[in-house]
Computed example of a mutant assay.
Amino acid sequence: MTYRLALFTPETWKATQADGCTTVGFRRNQAALARVEPSDLLLCYIIGVSRWSGVLKVTRAAYECTGTLYDEPESFPLRLDVSPLVAVNMERAVPIQLPEVWSNLLLTKELPIQNSRWGALFRQTLRQIPREDGDFLLALLRRRKELEDEYELTSRDRSKLTALRRQKKERIEWASYDNERS
């Protein structure tokens, strides 16, 4: 069993939860997908708001599917079947920059919390994550699932969400344009 980073936008995380956290999709250019095995654990991270939102267990090796996923212009044709060990909505997801999270992750604890370069660690989906970090996040998210409080979205979070929505709208417009030309 290997822990792996799985990146989601707020929209793809919401769609994954609406589907019961049973399938996740990837673009064709995910070479790392070949290394993912059943029983690997995906540590779900929501980009834009920098939050840990779940841990999903891979139940089937990667396969190709032609159906759409996530209501996106891209179909995310490469899929993994998964089952949730824990999954929380975006408002209850754990911000990575909480001191108790930041200082306990091998990935971040040596970096100053205000250093903007740490984001590069979270640009490659399916990269392997140290077991200690995975165990810590799994336990943390299981505790979070029992709590009813939420982490308020900051003005920075809301600004990033607006930018992500604008980018998605532009991708949809380009996809529509490309389809009209075909």
Rank of each mutant, 00 (worst) to 15 (best):
residue 140 L to S: 03
residue 151 Y to F: 15
residue 94 V to M: 05
residue 143 R to D: 12
residue 55 V to F: 10
residue 91 E to V: 05
residue 107 L to C: 07
residue 100 E to M: 15
residue 110 E to G: 10
residue 86 V to F: 01
residue 156 R to L: 12
residue 116 S to G: 06
residue 107 L to I: 13
residue 151 Y to H: 11
residue 53 S to V: 04
residue 51 R to M: 10
residue 114 Q to L: 10
residue 76 F to L: 08
residue 155 S to Y: 05
residue 57 K to P: 05
residue 121 L to Y: 03
residue 113 I to D: 06
residue 149 D to G: 07
residue 113 I to Y: 05
residue 59 T to S: 15
residue 110 E to V: 10
residue 59 T to I: 15
residue 76 F to T: 08
residue 135 D to S: 09
residue 51 R to V: 11
residue 92 R to W: 01
residue 82 V to A: 06
residue 56 L to C: 04
residue 117 R to F: 11
residue 60 R to M: 12
residue 109 K to F: 04
residue 107 L to A: 13
residue 75 S to F: 04
residue 101 V to I: 15
residue 55 V to M: 07
residue 144 R to D: 04
residue 70 Y to W: 12
residue 99 P to R: 11
residue 117 R to K: 13
residue 91 E to D: 11
residue 58 V to C: 06
residue 44 C to V: 08
residue 110 E to H: 14
residue 119 G to H: 14
residue 150 E to T: 10
residue 126 L to F: 04
residue 156 R to F: 09
residue 145 K to S: 13
residue 55 V to T: 13
residue 109 K to L: 13
residue 55 V to I: 15
residue 155 S to T: 14
residue 140 L to F: 06
residue 77 P to Q: 08
residue 61 A to D: 11
residue 116 S to R: 15
residue 144 R to K: 03
residue 156 R to D: 06
residue 92 R to K: 15
residue 74 E to L: 10
residue 45 Y to M: 06
residue 137 L to P: 00
residue 57 K to W: 08
residue 57 K to Y: 11
residue 74 E to P: 01
residue 126 L to S: 02
residue 81 D to Y: 10
residue 102 W to F: 15
residue 55 V to W: 01
residue 82 V to S: 00
residue 105 L to S: 02
residue 44 C to T: 08
residue 141 L to N: 02
residue 95 P to I: 10
residue 107 L to G: 03
residue 133 D to N: 09
residue 82 V to R: 00
residue 121 L to V: 04
residue 96 I to G: 00
residue 60 R to C: 13
residue 155 S to P: 02
residue 95 P to Q: 11
residue 129 I to V: 15
residue 69 L to W: 05
residue 88 V to N: 00
residue 72 E to N: 14
residue 85 L to T: 12
residue 102 W to C: 12
residue 117 R to D: 11
residue 102 W to K: 14
residue 117 R to P: 01
residue 84 P to D: 02
residue 84 P to Y: 04
residue 151 Y to I: 08
residue 75 S to Q: 12
residue 142 R to H: 07
residue 75 S to T: 11
residue 109 K to C: 14
residue 121 L to I: 12
residue 44 C to P: 05
residue 45 Y to S: 03
residue 81 D to Q: 13
residue 148 E to V: 06
residue 131 R to W: 06
residue 98 L to R: 12
residue 151 Y to A: 05
residue 82 V to G: 00
residue 114 Q to V: 08
residue 87 A to H: 03
residue 82 V to N: 03
residue 102 W to V: 10
residue 49 V to M: 05
residue 77 P to F: 10
residue 118 W to H: 09
residue 155 S to R: 15
residue 82 V to D: 00
residue 64 E to H: 14
residue 139 A to C: 05
residue 122 F to Y: 12
residue 45 Y to K: 01
residue 104 N to R: 07
residue 121 L to D: 01
residue 138 L to I: 04
residue 84 P to L: 02
residue 69 L to S: 07
residue 53 S to D: 02
